[in-house]
Design a protein around this nucleic acid. Structure first.
Ligand SMILES: [Mn+2]
Ligand SMILES: [Mn+2]
Ligand SMILES: [Zn+2]
Ligand SMILES: [Zn+2]
Lengths: 144, 144
DNA sequence: GTTTCTATTGTAAATGAAATTCATTTCTGC
DNA sequence: GCAGAAATGAATTTCATTTACAATAGAAAC
């Protein structure tokens, strides 16, 4: 299986664009962890490792990572978007704590059937779904 | 069944807050239509009806409408939040066109069972869920 | 290797949604 | 009416994201 960076290099070449050390650095940092991420947090992680990457470079890269199928938008929280890896990851849903943001991932195969039923019923070309269950985690529910 | 405005008056009184003509005007406008809405669109609707309500008054009212159970966040699209009525509405999910924003609402009773299973398995206090199916509507899928 | 073309970069400025400040107004209970 | 507290609108601020622009640097052609 190809690595994320190989997928990206191929994608960027096919589009007739250019790869750069900055892009490789950002991608390396994103995929060094398996966690969800947001732009600011990623920027600070790079900064703390003395990698001088500007925020616009991150913002400009994200649409390409989305288009190449390496990441997707996971959820909108605290006023900004959070992303997650998808290349090489099984599709999954999120159980999210409304207080502390804790995320638990789970599978729910039935939803694929719902997609198919809707596609037929409403003549939609269905591309996917997002299923989020919201609530309070064990720690937080005690204090609310 | 109580009207939305009655629910709101009761809520605001119980909190020891005050109702105002501005709030009544905003609430009247929100519930005059059954559609989803966002702040800017609501502001413009009020403006076009010569109702001089400031945007901050709308932004300040929304947390109370959420807290009182009259509305909820529906989805994040085009850089801002969209809301929907919930008081007197059956819970439902959304099929959304990624191109034109068209929304189709549908029911999926099975998801309540998923909630219960997760609550037990992960010791969460579950408050609800969001299930969005994304794709392209009949009109848009022809042009993509 | 050099040239040439143009995508990418970082800095700075601009946007736009949402929140906040503050002086003024308006409720509400006494 | 009066006092105290809450709400208002205009203006300002904040913060995420985007854009402008001049300098830089891939990469393809020579
Ligand atoms: Mn995830
Ligand atoms: Mn709806
Ligand atoms: Zn929590
Ligand atoms: Zn459409």
């Amino acid at each position: 299986m190809k690595s994320e960076i190989e997928i990206f290099r191929e994608f960027i070449r096919k589009k007739g664009l250019r790869n750069t050390p900055e892009r490789e650095t950002i991608i390396e940092e994103i995929f060094a962890s398996h966690d969800h991420f947001d732009v600011d947090e990623l920027y600070l992680r790079l900064k703390s490792k003395k990698k001088k990457i500007s925020k616009p470079s991150i913002y400009r890269l994200i649409p390409y990572l989305l288009e190449s199928g390496l990441i997707q938008e996971a959820y909108f929280e605290d006023g900004h978007l959070h992303y997650e890896h998808i290349y090489g990851h099984e599709h999954h849903c999120h159980l999210r704590c409304l207080n502390c943001g804790k995320i638990i991932e789970f599978e729910e195969k039935y939803l694929k059937k719902v997609e198919n039923r809707l596609a037929e019923k409403y003549d939609f070309l269905v591309k996917g779904h997002k299923f989020e269950v919201l609530g309070y985690c064990p720690k937080c529910k005690a204090h609310i």
